[in-house]
């Protein structure tokens, strides 16, 4: 079970969180033209990386904040966690 540092609450066990996918995906702005390809990429296409990966988790059984977690998908090592409004550096 992973041990995740919630930037708001501190170190908490994985069972307090729910996984939310790739944190690097940016939703296209509302009311703007989006090409089929861009929309397709946003909705469906994910890289499924092996290695370092920025991902979203929500601390659902804690502060309910969405957070960003940099994790190695192969070793589960967690390098860094950020609040929702903090930018990730890819």
């Amino acid at each position: 079970m992973l041990y995740i540092k919630c930037p708001h609450c501190g170190m908490r066990s994985q069972n307090e969180f729910s996984y939310g996918g790739d944190a690097s995906v940016k939703r296209p702005e509302l009311n703007k033209e989006v090409s089929d390809q861009d929309w397709d990429n946003f909705v469906y296409n994910r890289k499924s990386l092996r290695g370092k990966h920025w991902e979203l988790w929500q601390h659902i059984s804690g502060c309910r904040q969405w957070i960003k977690v940099e994790r190695d998908t192969a070793t589960h090592e967690i390098f860094k966690t950020l609040k929702a409004d903090e930018e990730i550096s890819l």
């Binding site: 729910s18 939310g20 939703r27 979203l56 929500q58 659902i60 309910r64 904040q65 969405w66 929702a84 409004d85």
Partner: peptide, 10 residues
Amino acid sequence: SHLEYYLQLV
């Protein structure tokens, strides 16, 4: 969770 996602992240 859906509402929180959009309010906090998007």
